[in-house]
Simulated scan of single mutants.
Amino acid sequence: MGSKASGFTVEQENLIWDLHRRGESLGEIERFLGVTMPRIRRFLRESSGIRPVPRARRIGHITAGEREEVSRGIASGDSARTIAEKLRRSPSTIARAIARNGGREHYRAMDVDAAAYVRARRPKISVLCGRPILRTVISEKLHEQWSPQQISVWLRRENPADPQMWVSHEMIYRCLYIPVLKAFDSNVFHELRTDRPIRRPRGKKRSHGRGRIRNMVSIDRRGAAANDRSEPGHLEGDLVFGTRPSAVATLVDRHSRSTHVVALPDGYRAETVADALIAYPGRLPTHLRRSLTWDRGREMAEHERITVTLEMPVYFCAPHPPWQRGTNENTVSI
């Protein structure tokens, strides 16, 4: 059985978490399970996209079977010491367990075990709740749009001799996304660059090409004239977002630094971006549209159509090295 609140079986819940961890979209999870997307979304939002840690009894705690033996020992009139010897437990452990749960007259194994399970579920105080200075520093950095990974590394570098000022990026994410930890206000996740209400895994499946750009041409194949800025017409492009889904495309000439802003009134899906980039640069003279360089955003999935229509090759930056479109980045940020 799964949780009553979710309406899913244990097998379905495990499958949802496995698919979510692999980076599958909600639509793909829906197809796997044959259930509606809103139900899946509600289930993931209950824990903010972070898989709950499976509950397990702590090693050393009295087990349900041992509680039954305690109950039988009490019924037989055995002392706590005698019961402890049979269970190979400390007499003080057994005596405390009996006293904590109503004494010898009211001790019932099943009731005691259920009560212990409920007590163990109480929300634990998070690390950040116990360290207000650390929490304040993290809040300030989040407000400055630092990522949890950056904050974690920076804290260790700035406080090498003070472990109380260290925290992992995963703990920051958990405190942001799990309300019961009460480390931050419930809307602090808006400070993250992604601004997502649930955690999304970084890892993506690679079993097929869906969602990836095909036949990309690397920036390494861009000609010398574009690299050394010796002739006009070599453009760098990117999207600039307003309130989603509002966006415009920006094109900056590497030679002259002239900037073009291309409206995207119908959104920034790949076909829409391709239509706009064909229509706008298509009005420019041929010598002012020799090539286009872009990052690996999926809005350029139809780059081949742009190349064929305008006879203008499209080059893509490497996955992670910075500033391969520095002309565009610096111009648009001013």
Rank of each mutant, 00 (worst) to 15 (best):
P52S: 09
S139I: 06
T272W: 02
K124Y: 10
T194P: 04
C129Y: 04
R221I: 00
S47L: 00
A114N: 09
V314D: 02
R290D: 01
Q324G: 05
R96A: 12
D162G: 02
K86A: 13
I133M: 13
Q145G: 00
S168C: 11
I16D: 05
R39E: 08
G297E: 05
Y173T: 10
S258L: 15
H287N: 11
V332A: 03
R72W: 11
L284C: 02
T309P: 04
G60E: 10
M37E: 13
S246F: 01
D228C: 14
E311I: 00
R202M: 11
A270Y: 01
G2W: 03
R229C: 12
I198N: 05
A274N: 03
H106P: 00
S71Q: 15
P319Q: 06
D111K: 09
A75V: 10
T250S: 08
G60V: 09
M171K: 10
A249K: 03
Q164M: 11
P322E: 12
P245T: 04
W166P: 02
R108Q: 15
T307E: 14
R296T: 04
R298P: 05
R222D: 07
S147H: 02
I213A: 07
V262W: 05
H303I: 04
E11W: 07
K205N: 13
A75R: 15
A75N: 12
R72I: 12
D253K: 03
W17E: 10
R196E: 15
A226G: 14
G7L: 03
A279N: 07
S333C: 07
A270G: 06
L288G: 01
S152F: 01
H190R: 13
W17D: 07
E85V: 11
A249T: 01
Y315N: 06
A301V: 06
R119S: 13
G211L: 09
K182L: 13
V261H: 02
E299Q: 11
S147G: 07
Y107Q: 07
T82R: 13
A225M: 15
I83D: 06
R67L: 15
D295T: 07
